[in-house]
Design a binder for these strands. Structure first.
Lengths: 234, 234
DNA sequence: ACCTGAACACCGTTCAAGT
DNA sequence: ACCTGAACACCGTTCAAGT
């Protein structure tokens, strides 16, 4: 599993490199240095091989990225859904999507860049669909609720990553920094002042998402399953 | 204004290049070919100069991008806010953010990549804050409503761009394509079927955003201003 | 003031060749 | 089967030099 190389490290013929080792090392590079830090050349040199070796084992950068994402997707898929009401359980899944994306921020950003977000979140999307089904939301209504919830989460993530990225580099172009220069008679001074301090995303996530959930998921239909927690993976 | 070069085209000493001409040409490149099509070298060769000339006039790529964004931001800022109730007027601004971002999709994507989204949308953010103020939402409550609304819009945009980008290139990794392989007993067949056809974003935007607006903006306080449309720019 | 040429330090990807 | 070397076609950016 995690022995540095798969079988014979230096004993064998060549570098003894495994496809798994390469993907794992690439994943580490992304988690440490962000999406931009993942370079075929750097990855090769860290593994002490030529770039062409990477191509032989895993294919081009797109395939490498897909492998990374699939790996993280599996790890994110294991969690417990709890809550008494259907709405609570839906919120629980939504929260997990939000939190696990923040926990693997760099991989999430990478997936977003290459358009593989759904690949990363498919297991969680399925878990969400299950809870909607249990709540009595099915068919087109389920799809719309599903998409609406996920899109809101996506928005929160985009903004969360943006603030972090900008805070790390130059501080201009931050929303609250830009609002510092705004003068407008139609806006109350208290509001302008509030705009200049960045919001707490977690509580705002909670209130916004429950507004969306409330409008798409009915209050309670039949109490078919009780309080007990359910594992997300079958 | 839009004379190909600012003053003397070929009469003058050299290329007769203006900073404005360069930014305008760069904007065209982005709008036609997307963010990746904007290359310092390509831009230079389209203007029949060396890359160093670009650097002399506008600075590095980041400054060029900022100039592009500021230009589009100004154009997006001109619109009319209409609606009788406060909620209607807030929704009107939200819709305009959504639609103008779709209209300038490539610039929006570019701004998102370099973390300058707030720069692009600042005028519209201000317009939104005005309507919230008129609705009686002020201070921290206004900021939270403001951010919640904009984050939901951001989520819709991310998903909209993602589907387009994936539809253009390879079709795998599309949400509905991934759902085609899902088999799950806990999810109703009607739901699985619905998941496999992509949703209509516009109506979903409408219902989702009004759910959010309803939860953050009170129904009606004082009818201080009537039905008449208001210009967004002062 | 305005522009060029050449160079540096990077990318991803491929292809023939080695063992 | 596994890996290397060299090359191609790109990037952004800088610096000395020209007129």
């Amino acid at each position: 599993m995690s022995t540095t190389t798969s079988e014979a490290s230096g004993t064998g013929r060549r570098a003894g490199l495994d496809r798994d080792d390469i993907v794992e090392r690439a994943l580490e590079m992304v988690e440490q240095g962000g999406a931009a830090a993942l370079t075929m050349r750097k990855l090769a040199s860290e593994l002490a091989v030529t770039t062409t070796t990477i191509y032989w084992h895993v294919g081009d950068r797109e395939e490498l990225v897909s492998s990374i994402i699939e790996r993280v997707a599996l790890r994110q898929a294991e969690f417990w859904v709890e809550g008494e009401s259907a709405r609570d359980r839906v919120m629980c899944v939504a929260r997990h999507v939000w939190r696990s994306a923040l926990a693997h921020r760099n991989v999430t950003a990478l997936a977003h860049q290459v358009g593989a977000t759904s690949l990363l979140e498919l297991p969680l999307e399925i878990a969400l669909a299950r809870e909607l089904d249990a709540a009595g939301v099915r068919g087109v209504a389920a799809r719309d609720a599903h998409r609406a919830i996920l899109m809101c989460i996506a928005g929160f993530l985009v903004v969360a990553f943006r603030s972090e990225g900008l805070a790390a580099s130059g501080q201009r172009n931050q929303p609250h920094a830009l609002w510092a220069d705004v003068v407008d008679d139609s806006i109350a001074p208290v509001t302008l002042a509030a705009m200049r301090v960045p919001p707490q995303l977690d509580p705002l996530f909670e209130t916004t998402l429950s507004a969306v959930v409330h409008s798409f998921v009915p209050a309670a239909t039949d109490p078919s399953h009780s309080t007990e927690a359910t594992r997300s993976t079958p």
